[in-house]
Nucleic acid binder design. Sequence first.
RNA 1: GCUCGGGUGGUGGAAUUGGUAGACACGUUGGACUUAAAAUCCAAUGGACAAUGCGUCCGUACGGGUUCAAGUCCCGUCCCGAGUACCA
Length: 1012
Amino acid sequence: MNYNFNEIEARWQKYWADNKTFKASNTSEKSKFYVLDMFPYPSGAGLHVGHPLGYIASDIYARYKRHKGFNVLHPQGYDSFGLPAEQYAIQTGQHPAVTTENNIKRYREQLDKIGFSFDWSREVRTSDPEYYKWTQWIFIQLFESWYDHEQDKSRAISELEEIFASEGNTRVKAACDDDIEDFTAEEWNAFSSEEKQQVLLKYRLTYLAETEVNWCPQLGTVLANDEIVNGVSERGGYPVVRKKMTQWSMRISAFAERLLQDLNKLDWTESLKESQRNWIGKSVGAMVEFPILSFPEGEEKVQKAPPSGAGGIRVFTTRPDTIFGVTFMTLAPEHELVKKITTPEQKEEVEAYIAASAKRSERERMADVKSITGVFTGAYAEHPFTKEPVPIWIGDYVLAGYGTGAVMAVPCGDQRDYDFAKHFDLPIINIFENADISEEAFSGKEGTVIANSDFLSGLKYKEALQKAILELEKLGLGYGKTNYRLRDAVFSRQRYWGEPFPVYYVNGMPQTIDLEHLPLKLPEVEKYLPTETGEPPLGNSAEWAWDTKDNKVVPNMEINEETIFRLELNTMPGWAGSSWYLFRYMDPHNEKEFASKEAQQYWENVDLYIGGSEHATGHLLYSRFWTKFLKDRGYLSVEEPFKKLINQGMILGTSAFVYRLSLSWPITEKNKDQEKYLKWFSLKFPQIYCSAKLYERFSGGGITLKEIVDKHPTKKLKEFYQNLDANKIDKDQLMVSERLIHTDVSFVNNSDELDIDQFKNWRPDFHNAEFITEEDGTFSVLREVEKMSKSKYNVVNPDDICENYGADTLRMYEMFLGPLEQAKPWNTAGITGVHNFLKKLWKLYHNGEEFQVSEEKASAESLKTLHKTIKKVTEDIENFSFNTSVSTFMICVNELSAQNCNQREVLEPLAVLIAPYAPHIAEELWSNLGNSESVITAEYPVYEEKYLVESTKNYPISFNGKMRFTMELPLDMSKDEIENTVLGDDRTKSYLSDVPPKKIIVVPGKIVNIVI
RNA sequence: GCUCGGGUGGUGGAAUUGGUAGACACGUUGGACUUAAAAUCCAAUGGACAAUGCGUCCGUACGGGUUCAAGUCCCGUCCCGAGUACCA
């Protein structure tokens, strides 16, 4: 019987589904193990071979753990709220829920074909009201909480109210807005309830605030920092501008220190922890206040303007020890004090500068690091110690968003300050002993001795740092402070397809809806675009008001501001639902809690999490934040969501680009009839030869040139295809890409012919390209490895692989490609190797057509092969080195085939051993071996040392470290005996040629090295 | 710029604590089977020299070093990838 993978796989997939083989129980005597994949966003394009990579790895591990006797939770679900479904809805009018449902169906079909051991009874979808009910509930909990820095935990807002009522807010150390004024208990108690609400909002862990946000006009929404790549939106690549808006924010900054410290507890890769550390961006230093001096008109005398506090410029610095090196200050152009302090003489210049820098986008400012710009405000600040006036400048190298938006400039110690000072001819004072600052700033820290600095002179960096802070504190002009780069996370999105906020507004103050009335379901809207007045899409809904009497949604027209109020129009961002989904899997159908205490206590948190590294700073940070919050408030018992995390590398696709090289004579006024330009340019290939309509029809995935020719045989296209030299390029595999490369160079050539050699000279990247010259131009074909994506027409579909080779081949091949964590290009060519291996494995259990295993004792040789394999594969799985375990299996099967091994004693354990990797074939073999239950119930084979014990070792004999020959010697031979035996060998003698060796190194069991 | 990875045949990649570099697979070449092809099986396959085999030399980005022994450890240089960036 041949290895009929299609039939075998379909049968076992049905068996698993019918028997609920992978259903996990929340009560078990066994130890638990939780293996989780980052759940997918169900996009319209379906899965490509890159998606399942991580799923296969986690599935192998989950199956392995089951064999090892663990109760394994291995669920899967969908992150089903998101932008693409909404964009699609805007274009086609189809409800996102409908397209999402369709996409999920397709995903499920594709996933099922690969044979994953997911417990689908626990499936979650973030867009399901029964799920987002609890996302809304968590939001409410955040709203009802504040962060107490003294206890270092989140607490109920009612406790804060009690503190305010009894002692005011002066002693409260809370994470809160900056602009809070002190009040006493009496004052608090005298506040109106509205005033109280306003104050509390500044303490809540989710709060409304006028914030400067990243606004993307094309997408019509705000974006989080991690949704912006290189100044443009991650999705779509649209420009992003800064804009002030009232937005919900999450006070994640309150958790900065804990998020940083607890990284040490996690079994994550160092690089991932490092990116989180960078993102949190802790810096220790001091807050210093420089009082402002002003020059009142007509008076030369320096006068102290508003006393410190109200009128000072606050700066954050990591180097308070360098304070005597301050020669000027720089404010960000957006700094609120700029307008107040600018002198009339400087006003014009300053305003022009502010206007100019406001025009420059964030991106331009980032790209243009080199040029130094700035303007003097005319104002001066007073140095806290020397009392000397310090000129105040503005410059856009200072960022409004970091620290206080102002810096004390120490040109001798900071390169940017140095450059600024040089450019504007500002003084530079050297306050470092033995430092040369004639060319650049001196940035040394450890061992640096401060000079020329009054009471700091002679002190080392560390001592000076502490002394400076101490002295500042004495003056009341500064204090030690730790600053974090981590900003509070904006939580509002002006979108339709997301979780609605369970919030309505009474007199402008937000109120939340009680749990028993959740979920607040997403309303129907006529269109998914912003309203004419610029409100988010939910503003289009006719029924989006909250009736506080009946606790239900009612039509907007009934709003009376007494019992019926308007609801929040924003929705939550994508990361809301994904921040806690791991806990919902534990108890997915619970209607009373997001997960029961029992389920939580049993499953705790994720033991192994596998997913892409693109979530390093977004999802993984937010999820940690919410977990810590829920723990603080007693809803969870764990501090961290994911114990161990592995990033699978991306699988890349190979794209072939067809470029058209053509001649053209662009005619301009200047060169009319004078010169001929040979201009090379690329065109969207399909658009040359086929209509735009056709192009759209093909956009379901990668398209080959042959497909276009078959479906749309225009004469030109046919000719082009036929004339391609099949010896030079694989014409049927030729993929057509819409990629457009712009060239910015044109070069002069007086001939009409394209000089290919010259062209290659000019563009070395085309050195290996194929060139084909046609009557209407020259074409070139280039292959490049890049991210696999529908838009790049380089997608390989896993369905086709399953169809042609089977899921087991796909699973093993994806693992065989290389280390899990490494990015690697997909190349289908090598898949036959893995497929042949499975065929050989199949043959081991068959005698020609018949399934047949022998009940006789296996040979010592075969047992050795088996146990060697058990040992290596087990180690490999534990180390997530799946690629090497696949080759171990290949070696094993090659050896057993050579030994003609067909004994049950070897083949039965082998079937279990390979089951995590190739579960379908394993089930088939296991059942043919006479077992009635699924192979998943089988115990994992145990490696026994006794089968591997060797009596001899094939010693490599090397001379001066170079291996020359080997000698088979008993392992129990002593060092001296080995030495004598080796020296007695004829080959050794010939290498020594009668010269006695200088030294002989014998490492028993390893090597012999003779030094001549 | 900084941080973290990495650089090994024609290709993907192996090589626990320094101990036989190139496992396993693809590809290529030759052979068997076949009318033929596919499939399958067998053999060879880092490079150079030698070629009857024995062999010799060079080889893990580059230059040094430590060591009996270095892909592996140390110092310096170059290159590639990822993240991050006027972070005060």
